[in-house]
């Protein structure tokens, strides 16, 4: 039913196709990639694309196509994991605050507002500077700085669902708070949450790229879209392909996730149901 509506939607379908394509390409990078992404070859330095190497090579003679494919693994993983952690913490905080209200809610809103008072990118950079480089730390830093987004969305949704009579009806039917939260409240917050998480992955991928670009992201020589971009920075006039192809990969992926998110917003809108 849901799948049928996604397939009919003019935004969700192209978004879904792009996202599935990118995920498959990264997942099967080891089968698809024509070269070893880490293999140096000084004789093949800075080769233009569409020759032996479809996307060209960088200043160490590494194949850009292979690096973009493998880099996708890291970038997508960082994006998805950070959103996953942030949304889990956000759900817990938002649901607790929104459902119970009162002083607990006040405390949670205070914490979320405090986190939100920093620009997210600066907060992430600050955290990375303290914790040091590494994939694990990027995920933690990016998750921490995006918790408020999910916390607020969930809290808002829970606040409106708490007003519904079926919540009171559940209490009338003898259910306790925990049961009400898991059986009645959370399943009905799924729709807005799916939309923000989908679009959140897109912005996490951008953040990872930005971090790697300034040298605070995924440490080399392992490729990520961000550090391939960073590698090409000094050669941008002689060898623009080093930056163009990972740049295109980022654009395509972000566009895909955003389209999917916008489409899901329409698909999950209860007013269009019936």
């Amino acid at each position: 039913m849901l799948i049928k509506r996604v397939l009919k939607n003019k935004l969700a379908l192209p978004g879904l196709l792009v996202v599935v394509f990118v995920i498959l390409a990264s997942l099967f990078a080891s089968h698809v990639a024509p070269f070893d992404p880490l293999k140096l070859s000084l004789s093949k330095r800075i080769q233009a694309p569409f020759d032996e190497h479809v996307f060209g090579t960088d200043h160490f003679g590494r194949d850009i196509l292979s690096r973009v494919l493998y880099g996708g693994r890291v970038s997508l993983m960082v994006g998805v994991l950070s959103v996953l952690f942030a949304s889990i913490v956000g759900i817990i905080l938002g649901a607790t605050g929104g459902y119970f209200g009162g002083k607990i809610d006040y405390a949670i809103v205070l914490v979320l507002d405090a986190l939100m008072s920093f620009p997210p990118l600066l907060l992430t950079i600050g955290l990375m500077a303290v914790m040091g480089q590494g994939v694990k730390n990027i995920v933690i830093a990016m998750a921490l700085s995006s918790i408020p987004t999910y916390g607020r969305v969930v809290r808002g949704a829970v606040l409106s669902i708490r007003q519904k009579e079926y919540i009171e009806a559940a209490r009338n039917a003898g259910s306790g708070d925990l049961k009400i939260i898991f059986l009645h409240v959370l399943p009905n917050t799924i729709a807005p949450l799916i939309v923000v998480t989908t679009m959140g992955v897109a912005s996490a991928i951008l953040t990872e790229a930005a971090l790697s670009f300034v040298g605070l992201g995924v440490p080399g020589p392992d490729p990520s879209w961000g550090n391939i971009l960073a590698d090409g920075r000094d050669y941008i006039s002689q060898a623009p392909w080093i930056t163009i192809f990972p740049g295109l990969a980022i654009t395509l992926t972000v566009l895909g996730f955003n389209l999917l998110g916008d489409g899901l917003r329409d698909v999950l809108d209860p007013k269009l149901k019936q």
Partner: peptide, 24 residues
């Protein structure tokens, strides 16, 4: 037991009739 006014808002839209009746 309480019976609510609005039968549109007093039933959880994501639960089947069986699950709604099974809850109590």
């Amino acid at each position: 037991q309480f019976v609510f006014q609005d039968p549109y808002s007093s039933l959880n839209p994501r639960m089947s009739i069986f699950r709604i009746l099974k809850e109590p």
